[in-house]
Simulated assay, not measured.
Amino acid sequence: MSPERPGRKLDTPQERWRPTFNLDSDIVGVYSERVARFLGTGRYLAIQTVVVIVWIGLNLFAIAIRWDPYPFILLNLAFSTQAAYAAPLILLAQNRQENRDRVSLEEDRARAEQTKSDTEFLARELAAVRLAVGDTVTRDYLRKELDDLIDELTERLRERTEETDPLDEPKTDDHDPTVD
């Protein structure tokens, strides 16, 4: 057995100093999305094509400055390195977009559910109002009833005036019986 050092407990792990490297994942994500977007453009493909043609042209025809002879191993290494970084950056950008889409979908579902419940509530309220209005008199109904009543009263008055027409003089005797 080894002797214990004073002040050190065996049940606690020993702390070691490690350098901390803190990166904000959102900042890394934003820049990776920018790089991934750029890698998917025609501009990037055109630039890459020009670089490859110049690279191959210089290494085939400029004999004095050949830094990467025919099998173009250095160019192949550059493409491999680019692919090794591009694939994770594209995956990171896709994951971030998927997370945004998921949050947006959840918000859309919640909004649709709220709209549906609001619509159902309004439909119930409208049905209640229709039932209540069915028992009350509307302005148009009252106006029609009053017009009908006026027509009926006018007709009755007309009938009465025809019965007692002032042009038809009542028959009266000019002869007074008391005078005889």
Score class of each variant (00 low, 15 high):
2 S>W: 14
4 E>V: 04
4 E>M: 10
6 P>F: 11
7 G>F: 05
9 K>T: 10
10 L>T: 07
10 L>W: 11
11 D>L: 06
18 R>E: 11
20 T>V: 14
23 L>H: 06
24 D>N: 15
28 V>N: 00
30 V>Y: 14
36 A>D: 03
40 G>P: 01
41 T>N: 05
41 T>Y: 04
44 Y>V: 01
45 L>C: 05
47 I>D: 05
48 Q>Y: 06
53 I>F: 12
55 W>E: 01
56 I>A: 09
56 I>C: 15
59 N>C: 04
60 L>I: 07
65 I>E: 10
68 D>T: 06
70 Y>R: 12
71 P>T: 02
72 F>L: 12
73 I>Y: 04
73 I>N: 09
78 A>C: 03
79 F>M: 03
81 T>Y: 03
82 Q>T: 04
83 A>W: 03
86 A>W: 04
87 A>F: 08
91 L>Y: 07
93 A>T: 01
94 Q>G: 01
94 Q>W: 01
98 E>V: 03
99 N>Q: 08
104 S>M: 02
105 L>P: 00
112 A>S: 06
115 T>A: 14
115 T>M: 10
116 K>E: 13
116 K>L: 13
118 D>G: 01
120 E>D: 15
123 A>F: 10
125 E>I: 05
126 L>H: 05
126 L>K: 15
127 A>M: 02
128 A>M: 08
128 A>N: 14
129 V>A: 08
132 A>P: 00
132 A>L: 09
135 D>C: 03
143 R>E: 14
144 K>R: 11
146 L>H: 09
147 D>S: 14
152 E>T: 08
154 T>P: 00
155 E>K: 12
162 E>T: 08
162 E>W: 10
163 E>H: 04
164 T>H: 14
165 D>K: 02
172 T>F: 12
173 D>I: 00
177 P>A: 09
177 P>D: 07
